[in-house]
Design a protein around this nucleic acid. Structure first.
Lengths: 155, 155
DNA sequence: TTGATGTTTCATGATGTCAAGCAACTCGGT
DNA sequence: ACCGAGTTGCTTGACATCATGAAACATCAA
């Protein structure tokens, strides 16, 4: 993986720098949007994760890439505010499913609607440019079909 | 600002989603790289900020977008490990400049070198594609020179 | 002097890790 | 079918970091 030599060319470094800026700005705006709804960033992420369906605690921890014991606390705080509730899993009594309440879903929806980032900025790009951006990002993330013609089946 | 109507078109939403993925992955890899050097994310960011020149505490807070009282603690921890030191500002005795020590600079350099993200992923893009990506990101960030000659040449 | 600015300290709360504990599930041997 | 060992899911506790806001203090600037 990281055995590849470091590309020191200025163009790559510039792109890396720009991505850093995008990340910083995204985070800033995300936290601000969350704060507007009296949520922390972690709470907002968790709430968003539950928007569509309930999840077991351990699954939340896996997706948020943190320890399950951490999730306990975040869910505790959201539950004490009535945004989330714990339900038993009928299939396994060890498991507790965290699920948004009606109020929690409303909050999550409002939060999503107020997430301006990459919406206002993207407004300055044409449709074609956005499509190009999408394809490049996909390939960066390895989501973009690894070009079956060229192979690279390995790794 | 946010008075613009929300563009609900699928393409924009997809790009927003992708940017979210990039942000998540960047953060994960950044924190992992920091952890490899026994640093937290905040400590790594602060150390990186000081790599080139010392900065007053209040300036660090401004760039990190947090309270000055918070910076005190982070610098305290880095200072207790010998990675950073406080110096007086000759021009203003109220001010304390935080500066990396030699060891701090080495750590910052090693950290930077181990930041694989957007380097390995970018390796799959051609030079031309990277240039396109750079330009699109620049425009997203508003860094793309708002055309000073004509002033708002607009769309 | 008066007011503004830069830093620190304190109190408080959220986030994060790890180790230990409890409850419930699984599975193998009898 | 049973029972016991090991595993898994969640919580609790202790602890460190990060973050904010109010208050204290020194210094600057008018």
């Amino acid at each position: 993986m990281s055995s590849r030599p470091a590309p020191a060319d200025p163009l790559t470094l510039e792109v890396v720098e720009l991505i850093g800026s995008v990340v910083a700005r995204y985070h800033q705006e995300y936290d601000e949007a969350a704060a507007r709804h009296a949520l922390t960033g972690s709470q907002a992420r968790l709430l968003t994760l539950l928007r569509h369906r309930p999840l077991p605690m351990r699954e939340i921890a896996r997706r948020l890439k943190c320890e399950p014991s951490n999730v306990t606390g975040i869910v505790d705080r959201l539950e004490s505010r009535g945004l989330v509730e714990r339900r038993p899993d009928p299939a396994d009594r060890r498991v507790k499913l965290a699920a948004v309440t009606d109020e929690g879903r409303e909050t999550a929806d409002r939060l999503r609607a107020s997430l301006d980032f990459a919406r206002e900025p993207l407004a300055d790009l044409t449709s074609a440019e956005r499509a190009v951006l999408r394809d490049l990002l996909k390939r960066m993330l390895g989501t973009g079909r690894p070009e079956p013609s060229r192979g690279r089946a390995g790794d």
